[in-house]
Every structure is written in C-alpha cells, then in structure tokens.
Simulated assay, not measured.
Amino acid sequence: MKKLLSAAATILAVACLLTGCNEKDSKIKIGVIQLVEHPALDKSYQGFVDGLAEAGYVNGENITIDYQNAQGEQANCVTIANKFVNDKDNLIFAIATPAAQAVANLTKKIPILVTAVTDPETAKLVKSNKKPETNVSGTSDLTPVAAQIALLKKIVPEAKKVGLLYCSSEANSIFQINIAKEACAANGLEYIEGSVSNSNEIQQVTQSLVGKVDAFYVPTDNMLAAGIANVAMVANNAKLPVIGGEEGMVVSGALATYGINYYELGKLTAKQAVKVLKDGANPADMPIEYLEKFDFTYNKETAAAIGVTISDNL
C-alpha cells in the first residue's frame, strides 16, 4: 500500500511539473453571479472569461470560475451570493445591478467587481463612481441615452410621442429613463411611461401603448432585454419602431440602437480583475470605468417589416 501511495504521489508531482501546476494559483476562486440569461449579459461574461485568459488566468488551469445564473430571481441572487461568501472566494464578479446588490449586501471583505450596472453610485454599491471607498468597483454599461433618443427622431422624424418601457424595480432603468425624459424634451417629443414589475406584463403593457405612441424606447433594462421579443412582436405588428438600449435587443427584433459592446465591457472588467488578483489592487481605490466607443446597429428584417428606411449616413 505504501509503495502504491508513493507511486501515486510521484505521478501527481510529475503531472504538476508537466502542466505547470502552482499551488497558490490553483487556489484562486472566482464566483460569477449573473442575474439572467440574455445576449448582453452573456457577452459580458464571455468577455470577462476571455480577458482573464489573455492575461494568463485560465479557468480550469490556474483559476476556478464558479458561474451561477439567478434566472432573473432576486431570491436566487441572495442564495448564490451566500454560497460565494461561504466558499471564501478570492473575487466575485457580479453581472447586473440586482446581482451586484445581493453580493454587496453580504460581504464587505471579498473584492467585488460589477458590470452591466448603469450607475453604481445610484445603486448604492459605491460611495462615488470616481472613488468607490467600498469593496466594490467595476464597469458601467451607461449607454448614450440622449443619442439614442436623437437617433429615434432621425429615423422617425414625424414621431410626436414615445413610449418608454422599463422595469419599475430596476434602479439602473429608472436612472436611464430620467435621462430619456430630458432627451425627449430636448427633441420636441412627448412621452408615455410603460412600466412593468414582472416579465408577464411586458406584452400587455406594450400593447396598451399601441395607438398612443409613434415609437418605443427601451433602455438597458434586464427584464425588458430578456423579454424584448414580446415587445418587438407587438410593436412590429403595429409598425412602430423600437429603439433599444443595446445590440442584443436589435438582434431579437428591435429596430436599431446606438450603444456599447458588452463583450468589450466584460474584457475591461477582466483587466480590473487582474489588477486585484495580480497586483493586490483595492476596489475601494479603483474608479468605475466606462467604454468610450459606441456602435450603430439596426435590424434589416425589422426595418423592412415596418416600412422604415435606414439612411446610409446613420
């Protein structure tokens, strides 16, 4: 038996030498909590994983990533957050505001990086976006809301009234909607708010605004992003354009957007993670970061279906 154990130990040691095992690196655990599955958040996660790999932190080799999806349920966010805290993870990556809030409420010690959070300060995750002074930092998905409303006016110059669709319980959505209201006023547009509290209300609320508005605007709202196909179905049947907050909405049937690249946002957050893991950086001193480049995207099929011509100069 002793000979067998000795042989096994030798084999393990040789394997570690051949694969570059490192006892310290192998203990790095990163917990990932994602609020819900939809293209924008999925891309943020993939960008984060790829960004870490490019920096030499490869899942399954020298780090372990524990990915958990809350399926849009706040109770699941709390359960997952508790798991990561109990596991004593080295770093927690939270995707979307409710997921970030759940984790931040349970630990003040484990470094937390967030993404797809429009305004961490308003969400009370940090004391200031410039200097967090908490164990939380990360990246914001603040999109050019005013430019998106201006885009709506360019595409539909005859529009007089806009339906603003959002989830009333998402702080990031309310933040964007307030900007959208100001942008509507600046562009000579009236607006009607269409708020929902759960995904089952999306189709009904959208339908209730048909005949009352000339177009819809949907910010980077997690609930609406996950249910954007329902919005698009109602709006497209009524030949009403939908300007979305991000590209994934356009892919799923909205007309157009002028927004950020969530994959690149995830990679930007990965750079912050490397600073924490490798250099010992403290999130309290790390400003919230933003992408500076925005992309125009439109759905050709939707444009044809609702009879809208997209100008080449857009």
Rank of each mutant, 00 (worst) to 15 (best):
A53Y: 10
I288A: 00
I228S: 05
T79A: 14
M223S: 15
G188D: 11
F294H: 12
A232G: 07
D87Q: 13
V156A: 13
K27F: 05
T309Y: 07
N282E: 11
N200L: 08
V274Q: 05
S311I: 07
K267T: 04
I110N: 06
G188P: 09
S137V: 01
N62R: 12
V14H: 05
K161W: 07
I243V: 15
L41T: 13
F216L: 12
S6A: 14
A94P: 06
K271W: 05
A304I: 02
V213S: 00
N90Q: 09
L277A: 00
G20H: 08
Q207F: 00
K43G: 02
V49Q: 05
L164Q: 06
N172S: 14
Y57P: 13
Y45I: 00
G72H: 00
I177G: 03
K275C: 03
S199V: 02
A305E: 11
S137D: 09
M249G: 09
D285V: 09
A180S: 12
I288L: 03
Q176S: 11
C167R: 04
E170T: 01
N59G: 04
N105Q: 15
G266H: 00
S169I: 13
T97F: 01
K109N: 14
Y45K: 12
F48I: 02
C21Q: 08
L268C: 04
L268F: 04
K3A: 15
L277W: 07
K275D: 00
L268Q: 11
N135H: 06
A180N: 07
L268G: 03
F175C: 10
M286H: 12
L106E: 11
T19P: 03
L151Y: 03
F84L: 09
C167V: 08
V32P: 00
D119T: 07
Y191E: 08
K293V: 14
S208P: 11
A150C: 02
D295V: 08
E61I: 13
S140V: 02
V49R: 06
I174M: 05
A284H: 09
A225K: 04
A9H: 04
S137F: 00
I149R: 03
T297H: 06
N187F: 06
D221H: 08
A229I: 08
A13M: 14
L268E: 09
V210D: 05
Y262F: 13
N105P: 04
N236C: 04
A183H: 10
N282D: 15
D141W: 08
A146T: 12
K212W: 04
L268H: 00
N135F: 03
F216W: 06
Q203P: 01
N69P: 03
D89W: 00
I228M: 02
A7I: 14
D25M: 07
I28D: 03
Y67K: 13
L291N: 14
N90S: 14
G163F: 04
A215V: 06
T79N: 15
E61K: 15
V32I: 15
L314F: 10
A270R: 05
K161G: 08
Q148N: 09
Y57F: 13
